[in-house]
Write a protein that binds this DNA or RNA. Sequence first.
DNA 1: TTGTGTATGTTACATTGTAACGATAAACAA
DNA 2: TTGTTTATCGTTACAATGTAACATACACAA
Lengths: 158, 158
Amino acid sequence: MDPVGFETHDHAHCMASALAKAEEECAEKGLQLTPVRRRVLEILLEQHRALGAYDVLEHLRAEKLGSQPPVAYRALDFLVSHGFAHRIERLNAFIACSHPGERHAPCFLICRECSAVVEAPGRQAAQALREAAAQLGFGVERVAIEAEGLCPACGPAA
Amino acid sequence: MDPVGFETHDHAHCMASALAKAEEECAEKGLQLTPVRRRVLEILLEQHRALGAYDVLEHLRAEKLGSQPPVAYRALDFLVSHGFAHRIERLNAFIACSHPGERHAPCFLICRECSAVVEAPGRQAAQALREAAAQLGFGVERVAIEAEGLCPACGPAA
DNA sequence: TTGTGTATGTTACATTGTAACGATAAACAA
DNA sequence: TTGTTTATCGTTACAATGTAACATACACAA
Ligand SMILES: [Zn+2]
Ligand SMILES: [Zn+2]
Ligand SMILES: [Zn+2]
Ligand SMILES: [Zn+2]
């Protein structure tokens, strides 16, 4: 997995490619990437940070794509349930997936200073969690792994 | 760490001992375990499951210990910030710590069927998370590791 | 006494999330 | 074509969760 980290990157490309992957995957699986759903994914990709449902809704309102909370929540639920976006529990917010298509345990690093959120590879942490759970006879279905701290730009080094 | 698992246990003892530990630790550190704070901890311990702030508030109201949201939130914040309780992000809820006093990375197993919540040892998962974060130059301060799935009682075996 | 710090009490509000119900549109068979 | 089904969308009205702000009460020290 290519960890989209805190360093800057070719964001236009990053966005276009994620959108293309989503379209491809929806076509494959017979999912309907409707205008609202597609636009919400674009909004998340554009911003490239965690947005609350009501932040997304503001964009939709401005563009006459919907004005009531359920519109945003439905689109976000669709994106999350199909892996195109993730929900950050800690922030009650949503972010576009950085690795669409790849099977991965999302794992988020949240900077408490600048609010940047990065999706890190969390396979090992998730695996450790599964093992600890198995010890107690618990079958893990979904995991949420979220860390709060300081990103490179805001850290002591900076 | 003694993993308080899904099996039944001597709850009266579990509760009394946690309360005693909290009192001891507050005495040591000069923290004030005021009547409201103490009662909220008792409520969490009694229920032995995740309670929303408003659930706690209902108890407080019934006992004339406070009637407005801030009362519950303040007490819960105190308990969480000193490690006597934890917040479960996924549920917007709080639970008494199963290992008060011990330094530990909380890690929760949430049954989607019966809503039981168990605090599992999460040292390894947390460590894996820290390492993945370090790769990206991110300094982890706090972690939230939460798994949703089926507990032994609700699982396929049952 | 007076200040200082901590904890409480209270109001009023902000934010986040949903249940429910009807309207709409595409897909498909009769 | 027409009716039927299904998914999506639009909207209202509300539930649930969380906080800012300010007043009050008390303990303790200067
Ligand atoms: Zn992802
Ligand atoms: Zn930062
Ligand atoms: Zn704990
Ligand atoms: Zn269960």
